[in-house]
């Protein structure tokens, strides 16, 4: 069996999307979406961080250069940061970083940042579905020569 169907219905192969999420809000929002059984595309893999302000833009650059098809950062709504002002720093850094992506040869649409609170399960579902759709419309990212393939993993999962 091949890993081919995303739950959004489109029978496109899964792409690599990395999420960096704030533990206090968006990670909880993703949990809330799970508890509410809000079905989402399965492409996203979430990495938990203490704050969106912990996101070093180099994490995103590294993910994109290593073959991620999309990167999503999500934190608390501005003014609602668990650490008072972490997401303000995140917002400024990530916006500048997004402007820089074309210089790296990466389509800036492959990276988005957003704000989702722990109570907003439905909003999280919408964010994931929309971003996944956007990445699928862009298609797989250009792989750097020599980047590893993931076939063995797909095989091992049957």
């Amino acid at each position: 069996m091949s890993v081919s169907s995303t739950v959004s219905g489109a029978a496109a192969p899964e792409l690599r999307i990395v999420g960096f999420l704030c533990n206090w809000c968006s990670y909880g929002g993703a949990d809330t979406a799970g508890v509410g059984r809000f079905i989402q595309p399965t492409d996203l893999r979430i990495i938990r961080l203490p704050c969106s302000g912990r996101t070093n833009p180099l994490f995103i650059a590294k993910a994109l250069l290593q073959g991620a098809d999309g990167v999503l950062v999500s934190g608390c709504h501005p003014r609602d940061c668990h650490y008072a002002e972490g997401n303000f720093y995140a917002r400024r850094r990530l916006e500048v970083f997004k402007q820089l992506l074309p210089v790296l040869g990466v389509d800036p649409r492959r990276f988005e940042y957003t704000w989702v609170s722990a109570s907003e399960g439905q909003r999280w579902q919408m964010v994931v579905s929309k971003f996944t759709e956007q990445i699928h419309s862009l298609g797989p990212a250009r792989r750097l020569p020599g980047a590893p393939e993931l076939e063995w993993l797909r095989e091992s999962a049957g």
Partner: peptide, 21 residues
Amino acid sequence: REHVSWIGRDQGPNTVKAIEL
């Protein structure tokens, strides 16, 4: 659970995602 089994219905992609996590 919250990030895999409760939000996706297909066992194939879910299992791959669980392995990766």
